[in-house]
């Protein structure tokens, strides 16, 4: 083993003013004061927002609180296919299906609950949805409630959440990933499942609702 060499470093001597420590203190304070005044008067671009009076506009693609989209007549677009519940890694989506009165739609969710405390905001549910029925484009990033139970949001609440009206101007899609079609509000992709408009003149009566659905031997 080699002997350790010792190198002696001469410390720089402080001069007189530095030895008083007064000048560096005022130098530092002047930087703080400059930013303080600039922020106060708004003479520079602010990084902070006046939360909660002012809400930050989230960039496009930000995965906020979920919402359920609506058909033109305001009913829920979801057909309860359970793709989102199947793919969900946190197991936070609970759906129960029921019969839709229109035989061409056939199925709709009776219960659609999302447990926001369990949710990991991965966005898989949005990817999996064949009907563009669930989105996370609300821009809502503040999830709060007074009680644990209130974090489980139901179908009615999910339907009322609106998309964020405009996305941040500086938001840009990640490099190498084209923007997904159908993910900006109001447009729809041609691949999305929705029963096409059909002729009215069917030659077989559609099934009667509810009462007839119960098996007679029950």
């Amino acid at each position: 083993m080699k002997p350790v060499k010792i190198k002696k470093v001469q410390r720089e001597e402080l001069n007189f003013w530095e030895k008083t420590y007064l000048v560096p203190i005022f130098q530092g304070m002047s930087v703080t004061a400059k930013h303080f005044v600039a922020n106060l008067t708004g003479s520079i671009d602010k990084v902070n927002v006046d939360y909660p009076e002012e809400q930050k506009v989230m960039p496009k693609g930000y995965r906020g609180k979920h919402r359920l989209t609506q058909r033109d007549d305001g009913t829920v677009k979801c057909v309860a296919c359970m793709m989102c519940a199947t793919v969900c890694p946190a197991n936070c989506i609970h759906i129960e299906a029921e019969e839709h009165e229109n035989p061409e739609i056939e199925k709709r969710p009776k219960i659609f609950d999302i447990d926001l405390l369990r949710c990991v905001y991965c966005g898989y549910c949005v990817e999996a949805c064949p009907c563009d029925a669930i989105r996370m484009d609300s821009g809502i990033y503040t999830i709060f409630a007074p009680k644990r139970e209130d974090f489980v949001i139901h179908k009615d609440q999910l339907l009322q959440i609106k998309p964020q009206s405009e996305f941040a101007a500086d938001a840009r899609p990640k490099q190498g990933m084209p923007a997904l079609p159908g993910h900006s509000a109001g447009t729809s992709s041609p691949q999305i499942f929705s029963p096409p408009a059909r002729a009215e003149n069917r030659d077989t009566e559609p099934m009667k609702q509810d009462s007839s659905l119960a098996p007679s031997k029950d």
Binding site: P103, E104, E106, R198, A199, R202, D203, T204, E205, P206, M207, K208, S212, P215, S216, K217
Partner: peptide, 17 residues
């Protein structure tokens, strides 16, 4: 081609043509 959906064919069975 469009045919009938949700046809009630019996107490236990639903038909989608």
């Amino acid at each position: 081609v469009e045919k009938a959906k949700v046809v009630d064919v019996g107490p236990l069975v639903v038909l989608d043509q």
